[in-house]
Every structure is written in structure tokens, then in C-alpha cells.
Amino acid sequence: MLKFNLIQSGSITAAAMIASGAFQVKNGQIILSGSGDVINIALTIFFAAFLVKFLTPKLGSYTVLLLPLIVAVVAGGVGQFMLPYTKMVTGAVGQTIGTLTNFQPLVMGMLMGIAFAALIVSPISSVGIAMAIGVEGIASGSANLGITACAFTLAIMSSKVNGFGTTIAHFIGTPKIQMANMLKNPRLFLPVIASAGIAGLVGAIFEISGTANSAGFGSAGLIGPMATYQEMAGGPLAIGFIMLLFAGMPILLGFAMRYIFIQKLQFVREEDLVIEDK
């Protein structure tokens, strides 16, 4: 969309890496730890892109030499300055979600499903939050079911305007591909919240469990279903039950949300969920 060349893209990438917080210096060694703070990375990229657009015509023939250095130092430095504050935001979100585990199990399951469905289509890492606050047991299972319901709901609601590959990418990969559309049109959160809340509630009713390492993935890579299977007795019945919960129920919820919010109420449009290939 912005049509950056290799030098410009590399400059922005360098700034994002510096500001991510993923690189730490310990005992004289540079250690890569995790993917960094996604919110801070996004803000840094935005600022770095603006800086690139502003500086490129002014540097002229010195662009190749000076642009990477200036963008990395200035944008990366600003990102490093903002990092503690964006981490505070992420930490506050984690603490808020952590309090949900204190509710009665059925209420907790519903709220965890909603919370993690909202996280998965936001700039915040659902996996990072789950691991940071140690989401385990029924809370983890409900979180995964909420994310799965979110993925199938968005996939089914957008299936007529997106290609087959994009549609299945919602639940095989991640529904975060809809993040831009969700933030642009917050109305889209309502069908997601409705389906995720139901899925999380069902998970709590049947005491679907998971681990802190699996919560936040949903159906992606079959991590959520496999974690649930490990917590169960196993066998063909368990596999069938898991398929029903992680595929059958989300599909039904997806079609129900499309009927209610698109066809019946016309609250949102399918076009709101178009993912353009550029």
C-alpha cells in the first residue's frame, strides 16, 4: 500500500526490532526473547513509516547511507522510550483478564471466551497474555473455544466476499487477519462476542480444560484441541466430542451469527470483512 523499496522497508524493520523489547542484553550477550510487545511494534512502525516518507525526498542521493541510520536511531529510540508504557497497557489488560478467573465457573467461562476472542483480533497477543497470567484448566479451555468461535464466525460471515484460502486461514491460521477491519468497524465485535460467549459458556459447562501454553491459540495448529484431548481420558469418543466442540459448534454459531447480524438485522455487512490481497 505504501510501496516502500528495500532500503525503506529495511529501515522500518530495524526500528521495529529495536523498539520491540524482544532483544535483551545479559552478561554481555544479546538475547532474543519472544516476539516483543506487539502494540509498541505497531506504533513504532507507524512512526517509522512517517519518518521514511518525510526524509526520503530530502536526503536525495544520501538516502541509502543515512536513511537506515536515522530511522533506526530516531524511530527505534522513540519506540524504546514508549516501551515501558505500552507494557503497562498490556500488563493492565492481563491483570483485568486474570480477575475473570475468580468468577463462578459458568460466568468465568463465558467471560474468558469473550475476552480472548476480543484479544485475538486486537494488537495484543492472546498467547502472551495467557502465558503471562497462567490461564489453565477450564479458563484455558473456554478461552480456546472463544477464539475458535471467533475464527469460524468471521470466516463464515466473510466467506462470500473472500476467497477460499482466506476463509480457511481464519481458523487454520488466525482470525487476527481481520484486525484492521475490526478496528475500523467496531460493530463487527458484537457477533464475535456473542458467539465467543456462547462457546466459552459451553466449554465451562462440559469442563473443557487446557494449559497456559495452549490458551490463546484456539484451533490454530490444532493446539487448543490437542491440549483438551490430553486433559481428557482419550479414545474415539473423546476425539468425536472435541471435534464437535472445536468444529461443529463454531460452524453452527458462525452461520447463526451471519443470519442474525447480516441477513436479519443487517447490523453489519459482508463487505466490512473483505481482506484485500495487495
Score class of each variant (00 low, 15 high):
residue 106 L to G: 02
residue 190 L to P: 05
residue 179 M to H: 08
residue 127 V to Y: 11
residue 274 V to E: 15
residue 146 G to R: 00
residue 270 E to V: 11
residue 100 L to P: 14
residue 220 A to Y: 12
residue 48 A to S: 10
residue 113 G to Y: 05
residue 247 A to Q: 07
residue 19 A to C: 09
residue 208 I to G: 10
residue 3 K to Y: 00
residue 58 K to V: 04
residue 61 S to E: 09
residue 140 S to M: 03
residue 74 V to I: 12
residue 231 E to L: 05
residue 242 I to V: 12
residue 270 E to L: 12
residue 273 L to G: 04
residue 124 I to T: 00
residue 142 S to I: 04
residue 193 I to R: 00
residue 238 A to I: 10
residue 155 A to H: 09
residue 44 T to W: 08
residue 62 Y to D: 06
residue 119 L to R: 01
residue 70 I to M: 08
residue 31 I to W: 10
residue 54 F to H: 12
residue 54 F to G: 06
residue 221 G to F: 04
residue 145 L to H: 07
residue 153 T to Y: 06
residue 166 T to A: 10
residue 46 F to R: 08
residue 47 F to R: 10
residue 191 P to F: 12
residue 240 G to P: 00
residue 86 T to C: 12
residue 89 V to S: 04
residue 194 A to G: 05
residue 237 L to V: 11
residue 247 A to M: 14
residue 200 G to K: 03
residue 14 A to Y: 02
residue 129 I to R: 01
residue 165 G to H: 13
residue 129 I to F: 02
residue 210 G to E: 10
residue 202 V to H: 00
residue 129 I to K: 00
residue 235 G to L: 11
residue 160 K to T: 02
residue 256 A to C: 10
residue 88 M to S: 15
residue 70 I to D: 05
residue 235 G to N: 03
residue 143 A to K: 01
residue 126 S to P: 01
residue 248 G to Q: 06
residue 169 A to W: 02
residue 32 L to S: 13
residue 153 T to H: 09
residue 225 P to D: 09
residue 170 H to Q: 13
residue 258 R to Q: 11
residue 65 L to Q: 02
residue 164 F to H: 14
residue 189 F to Q: 03
residue 75 A to K: 07
residue 100 L to V: 08
residue 203 G to S: 05
residue 10 G to A: 04
residue 112 M to W: 02
residue 125 S to A: 00
residue 202 V to G: 06
residue 244 L to S: 08
residue 194 A to V: 15
residue 248 G to C: 11
residue 112 M to E: 01
residue 256 A to K: 10
residue 276 E to I: 08
residue 112 M to P: 03
residue 16 A to H: 07
residue 53 K to C: 11
residue 138 I to H: 05
residue 99 T to M: 15
residue 257 M to L: 11
residue 272 D to I: 14
residue 36 G to F: 03
residue 154 L to R: 02
residue 130 A to T: 03
residue 17 M to L: 14
residue 164 F to T: 09
residue 212 A to P: 08
residue 227 A to R: 03
residue 193 I to K: 03
